[in-house]
């Protein structure tokens, strides 16, 4: 899990162009949206692309994104769960 969390941090920073933020700045349990990293609705859509491109996981209903993309940890948990199924 920790390995996946670190990998995800890197991927999120690149995919969302979070230039001045380093992996150490991201707490895996902090909310990604709102207060946290200040992500917005386009970032949420971009994270859906990231899951599909890097992990082959498709999210059909963007509303599910709210739970899945709550934090880096919830993302990692979702990936682990859905890759097992596949």
């Amino acid at each position: 899990m920790d390995e996946l969390i670190n990998k995800l941090k890197k991927e999120v920073i690149t995919q969302l162009n979070l230039e001045d933020i380093s992996e150490d700045d991201i707490n895996p349990d902090s909310p990604l949206f709102g207060e946290g990293l200040g992500l917005d609705s386009i970032d949420a859509l971009e994270l859906i692309v990231l899951l599909e491109k890097n992990y082959g996981i498709k999210i059909e209903d963007p509303k599910d994104g709210k739970k899945i993309f709550h934090s880096i940890r919830t993302m990692a948990e979702y990936i682990t769960e859905h890759q097992k199924k596949a």
Binding site: L16, N17, I42, D43, L45, E46, V49, E52, K53
Partner: peptide, 9 residues
């Protein structure tokens, strides 16, 4: 095929 919303906008 991965069109990116942050590019498209």
């Amino acid at each position: 095929y991965f069109p990116s919303p942050s590019v498209f906008v």
